[in-house]
Design a protein around this nucleic acid. Structure first.
Lengths: 214, 214
DNA sequence: CACTAAGTTGAGTGATCGATCAACTTTAGC
DNA sequence: GCTAAAGTTGATCGATCACTCAACTTAGTG
């Protein structure tokens, strides 16, 4: 049988993917190696042939996330909207859709690992930072398209950072409350402030401010 | 020796406090019972006399956090500022001070546990929700004092939720980057938007917007 | 003081943790 | 087709996990 994807690096990828899913669902410390092996349908010897320690596997997972940012987060959102500001909120809506589809179990995998591991795993912390940096970079590039409309004292980096913070906080609250309400309130508040901020932008408008432009 | 605080419920409190500190520093799953016993200077039998399981101990920690909100977070911030809007940002500055004092190791203990345990520990999730609810309630009460200045479509609940989300996200980024910059950028963006929003408030102003009012 | 309940001691439980290893099979290059 | 490297197998390792328990000490009550 020509299972060239199953063997020959196929095992390694199955292990990384299984670990990624389980770290996402349960966290790093709560996930055992045996659990990963079960889901990957591999044996411990295979795993430790590719990864010397559990932390090395975590590093591989975080490297994979860096590659997943654009195809899984940024590009789909860009497909769903054309206006720059709409694209920013389309990115946030991506996380909302995932929360809804998983009954508030899955939000942002990087955020989970950030709080769990930043103190104890320096290599992971560095890679988490790089993941955040990638996210902010992509978002800032979109904000840059309308940066001429930003008020004094506010630059694209600042706006992108706020969007990331608000997203991570909103996801945290949604998962805790098992409800989209706190997430929606957060996004709504940001959007309304955006309205005031980038006044005179395109004709997008926040849901509850019907007629704010003259 | 009259160690009436050491024995007679003193042991229980020492155990809860040790667990609280360690869960804060390392997370729930990464903290072992033996570690808690060492820091509390207690034996396992004493611990399991008061708490049947590790999760029961976690519940006690979360109950304690509910009692700590006002004396440790809200009241000190109110002491440091008198204007309602200033008080809101004084609360955020409290987290900033903790981040700075601990070299970005400690941020919000509830946020840590929220992401780690919301999926797997229903009782903890409920108590974490109650902790967030307490925070939002206190902050909303402050926002209510200036709610007449909020624009259409924005209520105090919405503003309080945004402040919580932004704080949690900002703390997450500061701990990951080991820097106050992302936290400060987040708070700065919120404050600038606040400026636009609650225009005509008191004379507080965001650092980088020197002359925006006519 | 006697009695009981509350609290404490710390060795010990089985289970599971991350990790190891020698034996074995498959693949790639010549 | 032979050889060496790469990959796989699964039993097994010691350490640590959350947790138990019988014996013991202390505190509260009549």
């Amino acid at each position: 049988m020509s299972d060239q994807l199953t063997s020959r690096e196929g095992t390694r990828e199955r292990i990384v993917e299984a670990a990624r899913e389980l770290f996402f669902e349960q966290g790093y410390n709560a996930t055992g190696m045996s659990q990963i092996l079960n889901r990957a349908e591999a044996n411990s010897g295979s795993l430790y042939h590719f990864f010397q320690t559990k932390e090395d596997l975590l590093v591989a997972v975080l490297e994979k996330y860096k590659l997943m940012l654009c195809p899984m987060v940024i590009e789909p959102a860009k497909q769903r909207a054309s206006d720059p500001v709409d694209r920013l909120f389309a990115i946030l809506m991506g996380y909302r859709m995932l929360l809804e589809a998983t009954e508030f179990r899955l939000g942002c995998p990087i955020g989970n690992l950030a709080l769990e591991l930043s103190n104890s795993h320096p290599r992971a912390r560095q890679l988490i930072e790089e993941n955040f940096e990638g996210w902010v970079g992509e978002v800032r590039a979109i904000v840059d398209e309308v940066s001429d409309r930003l008020p004094e004292g506010m630059d694209a980096e600042c706006v992108a950072t706020l969007l990331l913070s608000a997203m991570e906080g909103g996801v945290m609250l949604a998962r805790t409350y098992r409800s989209l309400e706190p997430f929606d309130r957060t996004v709504h508040a940001v959007r309304l402030m955006f309205d005031q901020l980038v006044r005179g932008g395109s004709e997008w408008s926040a849901p509850l401010t019907a007629t704010s432009t003259p």
